[in-house]
Design a protein around this nucleic acid. Structure first.
Lengths: 344, 344
DNA sequence: TTTATCTACGCAATCGTTCCCGGTATCGAT
DNA sequence: ATCGATACCGGGAACGATTGCGTAGATAAA
């Protein structure tokens, strides 16, 4: 079944005009008499004419759509960020095409290729947990394709970036646990390739050291899939709990790490925060309903999406090449609830 | 900054061939000599040629992209459904463009207009909570535009539909509460305009009647925004708790209704399930971590997305008009946990 | 040698829209 | 009556790719 739209030609034919005249009438050109304009506009309205965006894209060499690549839209942080992206894009008349990498490098490369070949005007990306090599992005970027990173960035690519103060977030979370009397704080970290993992690890470490404690490698476990697989979290926590000195608190560096951590303790019958305190990065909007309610470091996801989109559209719509790039660092919010309370 | 892609013309010029020859060589036409093919393919590879999809869309009158309109992607059910949609679309070489109505009718109309003008080949939609009038969809559908409904359908439009057995889901949930000894079961319902609300209400009512109880209107409260606003849930529950006979159990008919219900009880210090039992529709993947863990009716969201997409692509790719439409009803899953346990 | 056949390519139309470059008609001024 | 200006409109190329048709040249068949 074919759905046939009306074109400018149909109007021209029906009214005995040329397509040029119709086109100009529709765009309210001064070269067209008011009478003709009125006639064209009314007829166009009547048959519900809509300009064909594909034809316009071809002519203008722009599609007025931007691509977004994230790992999972089912992740609160990203769905909130996408809402921010959408809000700005919508206002400016841009379309948003979303792809998910599911934390897979291969998938990310395919997504990128697909999006680029679909004639998007620019890209917003938060790289996958597996991504170590950024050449797929670098190639495109070098050829002048507008890219803006948010959250998980590629340090080596010189373009706009929007992140949060991961260092401070992890620092403050760790400090909060220390201030609450916890002595043996472990760090459940995400993929070691990710910028955010390194930054958060740095904050965790600094907080320990500022408190006179020494950083111990055995107290940090990385999860290559960012906690997406329960098994990797389970394995990491099994190692923690088999240590000589079992941690009395955990800082979890990502959304899924935090919730899966809680799930692990629940299944093992380990009481939070009595036996082990927990504080994690999360943008869930129902951490208050969890058992125990979860103390979290929350990112301004919506604002990040908005900001990144503004920067991207700026890149896209700029006439001359931009060489000065923004590196926006947004503040995090600490929300203290039950899971991080003083133990014993 | 403009990003200029290489075209078939560039290849033709560089190789001293015509564009037709290059085009045919790339498509491996029998009319082109092996030598020329090799030359073209190698050069195309070298300069990283990618066909311009916009030009193809214009020529073929199809964009190979489908539109999706849902209320919120931050809702577990919909993000899971989108994953299903994406998985099929991706396989078939289709792009997915997602729009959110945020439960607003006006926004839905705008989204639709926007998507349609963006030359999508078809639409998957789950209508907003506010939508009573379906003429915006009907117009498009009548003009031969492929539309498939999922979850929240428009009864009056004759096309493929994919839903779950809402009646049975609500029936079983209610029956479960009855079997557990609850006598005064209230129904926290979504928007009265929605098909799913009516179906679920029907199941709830039937279960009561089959159990020898009479349906009471005061035991059903509708939330126009489907629970998206805490205030509407709060108002509804305030009315329930001010009844002469306070309900001892609640069936919540949507994701946000269920979680906001729990939030209400928590804030009021009302114990679940001791004082009031709760069972709701939800696709959250951490209902096991809530306090209390939540008994839910879970929809096969991913499968629904897949199925709806398959049906849509079938509509799009069919040569002749389709007049026989599928009405797929998928089974639901009851997951019994703490919140619905026997009271007292 | 002539004719038929086939190989391998180019020309040009097409999709819907814009826009440059013309062209004609009308009017006022000289 | 002639010229210039202005108002109004049409022709056609262009965007990138595909494709039906035409054809030059080579080869094979007669």
């Amino acid at each position: 079944m074919k759905y046939e739209a009306v074109t400018i030609k149909d109007i021209a034919k029906a009214l005995g005009l040329s397509t040029s005249t119709v086109s100009r009438a529709l765009r309210d050109s001064y070269e067209i008499s008011p009478a003709t304009k009125k006639q064209v506009l009314e007829y166009a309205e009547q048959i519900n004419y809509r300009p064909n965006p594909i034809a316009l894209s071809l002519k203008e060499k722009r599609s007025r759509s931007i691509g977004v690549i994230v790992c999972e839209i089912a992740n609160s942080f990203f769905s909130q960020a996408i809402n921010g992206i959408e809000s700005i894009a919508y206002d400016k008349g841009y379309n948003v095409i979303i792809s998910q990498s599911h934390e897979s490098y291969d998938r990310e490369v395919i997504d990128l290729q697909y999006l680029a070949s679909r004639s998007i005007d620019g890209l917003l990306i938060s790289v996958s947990a597996e991504t170590e090599d950024f050449s797929h992005l670098k190639n495109l970027h070098d050829r002048g394709f507008p890219i803006v990173f948010f959250d998980r960035v590629a340090e080596s690519i010189d373009t706009h970036k929007v992140i949060v103060d991961n260092f401070k977030g992890a620092y403050d979370a760790t400090k909060h646990l220390l201030d609450n009397g916890h002595q043996h704080i472990a760090n459940l970290a995400g993929s070691p390739h990710l910028s955010i993992t390194k930054e958060r690890l740095g904050g965790y470490r600094k907080a320990l050291e500022d408190h006179g404690l020494t950083y111990q490698e055995s107290y940090t476990e990385f999860c290559l899939h960012g906690g997406m697989l329960y098994e990797e979290v389970e394995a990491a926590l099994n190692r923690f709990t088999s240590l000589e000195q079992i941690p009395d608190a955990i800082v979890a560096s990502a959304d899924k790490l935090t919730t899966n951590c809680l799930r692990y303790f629940k299944s093992k019958g380990i009481k939070v925060p009595e036996e082990v305190a927990l504080m994690g990065f999360s943008n869930l909007d129902l951490t208050d309903l969890l058992s125990p309610s979860l103390s979290v470091v929350k990112q301004p996801a919506f604002e990040m999406g908005q900001l990144a989109t503004e920067l991207l559209l700026q890149l896209i719509e700029s006439k001359r090449p931009i060489t000065e790039f923004e590196y926006k660092v947004l503040p995090l919010e600490l929300m203290i609830r039950e899971s991080s309370l003083k133990s014993k």
